[in-house]
């Protein structure tokens, strides 16, 4: 019998445990077009390739347009990627006008990633989206690439709790809080978010990193710091997921360096209920539909009746 691949993440029902990492998938149009060109892709809703996702997580959306960072924005490392995009986005109005309507019709629930420079800005975005077809919010308090807001909220349990409580007051939709690994005790932040009303947590955002241009004797990125993602960060992400799974009862979306089926299984077994695929979309732009199929096959072959059985099973 076909295994039950559905999971529920803080009230958000997902057809399978897969979402994509915010900022690596845009609003899905480009990948939808590419997936549609693959004859081997079988999706649950014919003609809607994104329906093979459990949920789609959008790029970060702020109240006003953000220009993002100047200078170099991306570099490769030995087995990762450093980015300093700086949350460039056209703002919530433009997002609602151009992306959300289309997205909401693609047969997959939409998690809107929310960013802000201040507590009020997060709330503004959530309030603006309340009448929209967004299925859930992912509150990004963990971006290392912007000066104010972002990461500064995610490294302090009190500030994290404030942002979460303010967003909580603005919505009854599933509220996912995205955590940074750039802290000493991630479980403290997780607990603070849980107590302030988060329905689920996603982790990890990128790891703070730096690159130096030896030839020009200067830092590669204008702000110095950039965010590391890709295979290089997977052990850090797994450790974070495992710790947080022990510390709080909330469902977790695990992400950071997922690039193959074993990676997915590791995250689930370490405590994640769902997983996000980010940088690997750049390496292999059809990886997500492939992993969806591979995970189902693996469950079938290994006698797993419901994928949820795997969550935290590694102890």
């Amino acid at each position: 019998m076909a295994p039950d691949m559905a999971v529920t993440v803080g009230g958000l029902a997902m057809r399978n445990p897969f979402t994509v990492a915010s900022g690596t998938f845009g609003s899905g149009r480009e990948y939808a077009a590419l997936w549609a060109s693959r004859p081997e892709l079988v999706c649950p809703i014919p003609g809607k390739p994104l329906s093979c996702l459990g949920a789609l997580t959008t790029k970060g959306v702020s109240p006003q347009p953000w220009a993002g960072n100047d200078g170099c924005r991306m570099a490769e490392t030995a087995s990762g990627v450093l980015n300093a995009i700086g949350l460039q986005n056209p703002g919530v109005e433009d997002f609602c006008a151009h992306d959300l309507g289309w997205l909401a019709d693609q047969g997959t629930p939409v998690i809107v990633n929310v960013c802000g420079h201040s507590l009020d800005q997060y709330v503004q975005v959530v309030e603006r989206l309340e009448e929209s077809p967004a299925a859930a919010y992912e509150i990004n308090i963990s971006c290392p690439n912007v000066d104010c807001g972002g990461l500064s909220f995610g490294v302090d349990p009190k500030l994290a709790a404030k942002v979460v409580a303010a967003c909580r007051a603005a919505t009854r939709r599933p509220l996912i809080v995205k955590l940074t690994p750039n802290v000493t005790a991630i479980a403290d932040i997780a607990r603070a978010a849980a107590e302030a009303g988060a329905d689920a947590l996603s982790l990890i955002n990128t790891v703070a990193g730096l690159a130096v241009d030896v030839r020009r004797r200067r830092l590669v990125f204008d702000r110095g710091v950039a965010g590391l993602s890709g295979p290089a960060v997977k052990p850090i992400a797994l450790h974070a997921v495992h710790r947080v799974h022990q510390a709080v009862a909330l469902p977790l979306i695990g992400l950071g360096g997922i690039a193959c089926l074993d990676d997915v299984l590791e995250f689930l077994l370490a405590g994640a209920t769902a997983v996000g695929v980010g940088t690997a979309n750049f390496t292999d732009p059809v990886i997500v539909p492939r992993l969806v199929g591979e995970l189902e096959r693996w469950c079938l072959d290994n006698g797993v009746k419901a994928v949820g059985e795997l969550t935290g099973a590694a102890g």
Binding site: G23, T24, F25, G26, E30, Y31, L34, K59, A67, G68, C72, R73, M74, A75, V81, N83, I85, Q88, T279, N281, F282, P285
Partner: peptide, 22 residues
């Protein structure tokens, strides 16, 4: 030329400053 991530238009790593914005 710019460093590129996705190549498809989603990651915004390859932006060029133009008279109509990035």
């Amino acid at each position: 030329e710019r460093p590129m991530g996705c190549g498809l238009g989603v990651c915004l790593s390859c932006v060029v400053q133009t008279d109509r914005g990035r």
